[in-house]
Simulated scan of single mutants.
Amino acid sequence: MIAFFVMVGFGVVVPVLPVYARSFGVDHTLVGAVLSAFALMRLVASPFVGRLIDLAGERVVLSTGVFVVAASSALAGLAADYPQLLILRGVGGIGSAMFTISAMTLLLGATAPGVRARAIGFYQGGFLIGGMAGPALGGLLATVSLTAPFFFYAATLAVAGLVGVFLLSAPNRGGVDGASTETPVPFRDVLRDARFRVACLANFAQGWSSFGVRSALVPVLVVEVLRGPSSWTGVLFAAAAVTQTLALAPASRFVDVVGRRPAVIASFAVAGVTLAAVAFTQDVWTLGVLLCLYGVATAFMGTAPPALVGDAAGARSGRPVAVFSMCSDVGAIAAPLVAGFLVDRVSYAAAFGSAGALLAVAAAAGLWLPKALAPAVSERVAGQEA
């Protein structure tokens, strides 16, 4: 529920934010700075969020983070000038880090290993459905005013925050937010675990490819290479999102029942080949098929690495989840800059190839994961032996 309300509001704001920033009379570089400020402050805040979760618990940090984003979004709609908008978006990034890290930590702690990937997939489904509904509502609200989406975003976040305050279980039984009473795995031991290292590398590759190269270059590719209207980008991304949503349930079940290792190796290999091939498309239909295939792979890529973090760190995993989240943020921040440089100096093939190469490295790293029984299978075997 929280994920859905957060993403509905986020999807409402994203289409109008660049236009709103331009209304202050700034150039495109400063418009980009507003977009980057959110991700940059997420990255800066993440290391502290892990510590904060250890002190206050996931429930408190989650709800506080959501309310921070709500307040900053409402104030952004009232911003008097560009510097105020920039600062408020940065504050929103801090709240976003608090929410996303504590929510994933709570989710990993509340689920047994045998159903962990399915829980993650269900949670991400809320994000995807909300993200698909948001832009349509944002277009309608933008006809009212450029600031209306920000107030709508604040309202949806307030609902999400209230859900966190009143519907999540309060702390009890000595565990963090009642999620678990198991002894935390020392962070140094988590860092030594191959499962955690592979998960971090995979998340960096996904941040680079999905949030960086794909989001930054596909819209330009559609307009400048395929000579299509910019509206095609929205249709293509929507089709890929629908495909990813439909694939989430079978993908997450595969990760739980068949195993994390084959899911990581196969999905990152397919994603690498698919994204590298995007640069060579000659028509929008081929591009659409490739993006939908990438969406299917993303359903596996979005569930297997977080499940590996839960397997390695256990239930009380605030700091490991924070580091895992930072890997994606670093990729998402660096990729648009590097990809843009490669397009300007080399070619689209080099830019998309950088993403394909990183995804291939992540797939190869999956070979170092332990060849153990899938969590769901091992739990069933243990139950039969008992």
Results as ranks from 00 to 15, higher is better:
residue 191 L to T: 09
residue 232 W to T: 14
residue 9 G to I: 07
residue 384 Q to F: 14
residue 106 L to A: 15
residue 183 T to A: 15
residue 196 F to G: 02
residue 263 A to V: 04
residue 160 A to I: 03
residue 296 V to K: 13
residue 206 Q to Y: 12
residue 245 T to C: 06
residue 258 V to D: 04
residue 221 L to K: 09
residue 116 R to P: 00
residue 109 G to M: 02
residue 37 A to C: 10
residue 288 G to W: 00
residue 154 A to T: 06
residue 68 V to D: 00
residue 50 G to I: 01
residue 102 S to N: 11
residue 171 P to G: 01
residue 378 S to K: 09
residue 361 V to T: 05
residue 255 V to F: 13
residue 212 G to H: 04
residue 371 K to Q: 11
residue 359 L to K: 13
residue 352 F to V: 08
residue 13 V to D: 12
residue 151 F to C: 06
residue 287 L to W: 03
residue 267 S to H: 05
residue 95 G to R: 03
residue 70 A to D: 07
residue 203 N to D: 06
residue 73 S to D: 04
residue 8 V to K: 08
residue 26 V to W: 01
residue 301 M to W: 07
residue 247 A to T: 10
residue 324 F to E: 01
residue 184 P to Q: 07
residue 96 S to T: 15
residue 334 A to L: 12
residue 241 A to Y: 11
residue 82 Y to F: 15
residue 261 R to N: 08
residue 164 G to P: 08
residue 239 A to T: 00
residue 73 S to I: 02
residue 266 A to D: 01
residue 129 I to L: 10
residue 112 A to W: 13
residue 256 D to Y: 12
residue 21 A to N: 12
residue 272 G to T: 02
residue 272 G to A: 02
residue 84 Q to V: 13
residue 89 R to V: 09
residue 87 I to H: 03
residue 104 M to N: 06
residue 18 P to F: 06
residue 385 E to C: 08
residue 219 P to S: 07
residue 112 A to Q: 15
residue 380 R to M: 14
residue 208 W to C: 03
residue 313 A to D: 05
residue 8 V to I: 08
residue 207 G to A: 11
residue 347 S to T: 10
residue 330 V to D: 09
residue 263 A to N: 02
residue 328 S to N: 13
residue 116 R to A: 04
residue 155 A to E: 01
residue 174 G to Y: 01
residue 23 S to R: 08
residue 59 R to K: 10
residue 270 V to F: 10
residue 7 M to C: 11
residue 64 T to D: 10
residue 64 T to N: 02
residue 256 D to V: 10
residue 238 A to M: 08
residue 185 V to K: 11
residue 243 T to K: 03
residue 88 L to G: 10
residue 278 V to T: 11
residue 179 A to D: 12
residue 220 V to Y: 13
residue 337 L to E: 03
residue 99 F to V: 07
residue 224 E to C: 01
residue 196 F to W: 14
residue 62 L to F: 14
residue 268 F to K: 09
residue 369 L to Q: 03
residue 26 V to E: 02
residue 198 V to H: 13
residue 300 F to H: 13
residue 382 A to I: 10
residue 82 Y to M: 05
residue 36 S to I: 05
residue 333 I to Q: 00
residue 10 F to P: 06
residue 166 F to K: 04
residue 188 R to M: 11
residue 118 R to C: 06
residue 14 V to I: 12
residue 307 A to I: 07
residue 236 L to V: 09
residue 45 A to L: 03
residue 319 R to G: 05
residue 321 V to Q: 12
residue 136 A to S: 15
residue 108 L to V: 11
residue 281 T to V: 08
residue 255 V to G: 07
residue 127 F to N: 05
residue 373 L to A: 14
residue 132 M to E: 11
residue 263 A to F: 09
residue 221 L to Q: 08
residue 91 V to A: 11
residue 147 T to R: 15
residue 30 L to A: 13
residue 318 G to M: 04
residue 47 P to W: 10
residue 367 L to Q: 07
residue 220 V to M: 14
residue 219 P to V: 05
residue 190 V to K: 07
residue 133 A to S: 05
residue 274 T to Q: 03
residue 39 A to Y: 15
residue 204 F to P: 03
residue 248 L to S: 02
residue 8 V to E: 04
residue 256 D to C: 08
residue 118 R to S: 10
residue 262 P to Q: 04
residue 334 A to S: 10
residue 84 Q to T: 15
residue 31 V to G: 05
residue 193 D to W: 07
residue 120 I to G: 14
